[in-house]
Design a protein around this nucleic acid. Structure first.
Lengths: 193, 193
DNA sequence: CTTGAACCTGAACATTCGTTCAGTTATTGT
DNA sequence: ACAATAACTGAACGAATGTTCAGGTTCAAG
């Protein structure tokens, strides 16, 4: 019987449990899950899992790490292609939320309608991750209110003031007269295919 | 003292605990967290949290739901703009991983190098979410190996067979002679700004 | 075959868990 | 002001928790 593969299998069923139940199983539940007959066997396994960083202990209690909950294996560049199954299991797994969202309380997900930013690679139907309440820097992409309508534009500061510039030759830049409401700064673009 | 706001505050500190500790606090820990003096007070609060869907019970144990762990508030379209703080708290929170990844075991994250798909809005430096081991459908974007090099192309099936087509006029389509290795199908594109 | 290490069984243990109860305090509507 | 409802305190409870111990199995190396 293989040993390392065996551990991987156990990690998989652990992952499945955590995903469906929303929590780490108790030692008793792991008995059934890993087909042990003694809680001490579980104790040994947990020791290993802690050592490899799949779970950790927080005040005596078991806790999931991002290595366990993170579902995405982060690989290198496209050119490198895909790794062999052996390398595969060594890949770091990450959590997209943690990776993309800095301030959960003020970050929102909006659907893009319109093609005003299409030359910046933001298409209609794309999702944009918008962080509210931050003062935009020059050339940030922002969600702004112009004439009672919300749009996505480049935020540009020049000698005359502030300019909202689309990334589409069909549209013209807007120079807000008096009021300019900035909804937030676009931190990421997500397209589901 | 406000009531609903009070609950929101508690949910916030709960979120913070879950994020840093990787698990739901015990009732005793919630005593300190919510500044109660009786476990029964916690018991009542948990009842509420379950009712509102922030936590759930799995076999008697407390478990986190995506409403608690999901950090992103999903709003409508850009046109709708931003909601008032009152509406804000009602927004559904989602988990990007769950939203984007169907099959965690076979999904990878790659960095795009090269501009062969730039007209499809896939820029160098973007991340692509690639699902391995699926047979691509016509006009899917795939990661394929051509002449020992991995690239991203449209996968097109026509009368002559299979064609790998870039989304960039500067490059030409490739018709694989004998072998064609498909690394996977691109399911999502992510750009961090 | 023997030895040693890694892994496991099964039972015992103190500790901690979430729940429940009776009674008090705070908050709300009439 | 008063009653009704909700929310909380504090203590008690059995059940379940993770840990530990002594002893068994398995398996590969010498």
């Amino acid at each position: 019987m293989p040993r390392i593969l065996d551990l991987q299998m156990k990690i998989r069923s652990l992952r499945r449990f955590v995903k469906t139940e929303g929590r780490i199983p108790t030692y008793r539940e792991m008995l059934a899950l890993f087909e042990y007959r003694s809680k001490n066997a579980v104790h040994g396994l947990v020791k290993k899992l802690v050592h490899f960083g799949y779970v950790r202990k927080s005040r005596g209690k078991l806790a999931a790490t991002s290595r366990l909950t993170g579902v995405l294996k982060l690989l290198g560049a496209v050119q490198a292609g895909f790794p062999s199954p052996a390398e595969e299991e060594l890949a770091d797994t990450i959590n997209l939320d943690e990776f993309l969202v800095e301030r959960p309380d003020t970050t929102y997900l909006l659907t893009v309608s319109g093609d005003s930013m299409i030359e910046a690679g933001i298409h209609p139907g794309d999702l944009v991750l918008v962080e509210k309440g931050r003062t935009p820097k020059n050339r940030d992409i922002v969600v702004a209110q112009v004439d009672d309508e919300w749009t996505i534009k480049y935020f540009i500061k020049d000698s005359e003031g502030i300019l909202l510039q689309p990334a589409n030759r069909k549209y013209e830049s807007i120079r807000p007269r008096r009021f300019l409401t900035i909804g937030g700064v676009v931190r990421a673009v997500i397209r589901k295919l």
